[in-house]
């Protein structure tokens, strides 16, 4: 599941004109790494919500800035599993 999420994440970032060539699981999503600004993080969370059927709260997108790619994918995977279990 996590690899599927990572693939979707990279495809989304490519559509959003972010280079994923140098990204890996340790890359931070926000300014310290991939440099996604607030609206880009909000778009990314919407894309994930739409594709995987999970829901983020409004203030969570800001927290993604400090997450690495690996942490983000794990968090999405956890929510997908929680959603499918309920």
């Amino acid at each position: 599941m996590t690899s599927e999420i990572r693939q979707f994440l990279f495809e989304s970032l490519t559509v959003m004109k972010y280079s994923t060539a140098d990204m890996d699981d340790d890359t931070v999503l926000g300014p310290a790494g991939a440099d996604l600004e607030s609206l880009a993080l909000a778009e990314l969370s919407l894309r994930v919500e739409d594709h995987f059927g999970v829901r983020f709260e409004e203030d969570e997108a800001e927290m993604f800035a400090a997450m690495t790619v690996g942490e983000f994918c794990a968090e999405v995977a956890r929510r997908v599993q929680t959603a499918s279990a309920t």
């Binding site: 609206l39 909000a42 778009e43 919407l46 919500e49 739409d50």
Partner: peptide, 13 residues
Amino acid sequence: TRGRLGISPFMLP
């Protein structure tokens, strides 16, 4: 057609 998820955060700019 898609509801809330259809609206881009970049719409206002």
